[in-house]
Design a protein around this nucleic acid. Structure first.
Lengths: 200, 200
DNA sequence: GTCTATAGTCCGATAGAC
DNA sequence: GTCTATCGGACTATAGAC
């Protein structure tokens, strides 16, 4: 169904361009990445590429929206709690250094108010912290997480640690086991109380 | 002593350029920052600036070396433990958004192997994690931090959280209290055991 | 020590042929 | 749908006058 009709070729080319573009934006950031280069590597001229995406900015936003975990495979994620979701996303990221680079690079560029990525990342962090806070609060109600801790603080810290670990991992992959360290943090937050333990 | 002789003017101009350049690199990242703009704002032509720093890269490295916390004011930091040092640095950073932006922007750009900042940040993270790990280990010996936790993990997590909080804070300053959240993390690591508390 | 002028390069976008 | 050609603009760095 998806591949019939006069647009099949155009759709396939679009996909190819997006794949190549992801790599380039990840490796170089928005500004250093060049439409000419992306086009060349996709087997097109620059003008040929801009037939599919009318501007560099549009191409970039398409790349980043597509890979946003908010619309990741629902089969894998829908029924997971958010903290579990975050941890499994980080586990998955170990296999996708290009994607990690894209998010590290572009989130940093988004601190410039005029960055193309600014509003994307602002709303992404709102959403992420919100999801995690709600999950953590329900775990506090369930007694899994100490009630005296602030759920906003914990949510923000989980996101911050995940981001910071990505950076350390990209710089020195052999020295930084992201998922294991993030799990250590989560264990601190649950105070290891997910299993019985006697008072000291 | 420092301001005498034929070089006084040159030295003062250098300082002015470095201050302006810090702002620009912080606001725009390495590539988007323009030597022309930095020169203009320093009251110089582009060529005039390049009399003081022979290339953009040399200017940048000078900026970033100068503001590296490794050679921060020794009077303030020398006798602090490293974890305390990190927390007080983050407290200080709230007053210096430009500096925070510089480090967030440039650390992200450094994941590109060809980045001019690459080796700077690789060695910086080695150093930072090493300092923290040593401090945490000695606190484990002193019973402040549970011995069964991995000091490498904790050190890496403290750095990661500090970095990630900086990013969240830059995007939404009003929603993210960096020092308070980092202290919350440290409290988790000491399991709140630095003061007496009754069993539940 | 600072200037003007310019060389040389790369970029994004558009016009228009096929 | 893809191309070639080109425009207009940014940038770094250098040459050379003052």
């Amino acid at each position: 169904m998806a591949e019939r009709g006069p647009y099949a070729k155009g759709v396939a080319k679009r996909e190819e361009i997006l794949t190549v573009a992801l790599e380039h934006f990840a490796r170089r950031g928005y500004d250093r990445a060049s439409v000419r280069e992306i086009a060349r590597e996709s087997g097109l001229s620059q003008a040929g590429l801009l037939h599919h995406f009318s501007s560099k900015q549009e191409l970039f936003l398409e790349v980043i929206r597509r890979r946003d975990d908010r619309d990741g495979d629902p089969v894998h994620h829908r029924h997971l709690h958010s903290v579990d979701h975050l941890i499994s996303a980080v586990e998955h990221n170990v296999e996708e250094p290009g994607l990690v680079r894209l998010f590290v690079t572009m989130s940093a560029e988004s601190v410039d108010e005029s960055s193309v990525a600014r509003s994307f990342f602002e709303s992404r962090y709102d959403w992420l912290r919100g999801e995690l806070r709600a999950d953590i609060q329900s775990r506090q109600d369930a007694g899994e997480v100490p009630a005296e801790l602030d759920a906003d603080d914990l949510a923000s810290l989980m996101v911050a640690a995940a981001d910071g670990l990505q950076l350390q991992w990209l710089l020195q992959p052999d020295q930084v086991d992201m998922p294991s360290r993030l799990k250590t943090l989560w264990r601190l937050m649950t105070q290891g109380d997910d299993t019985e333990h006697p008072p000291a």
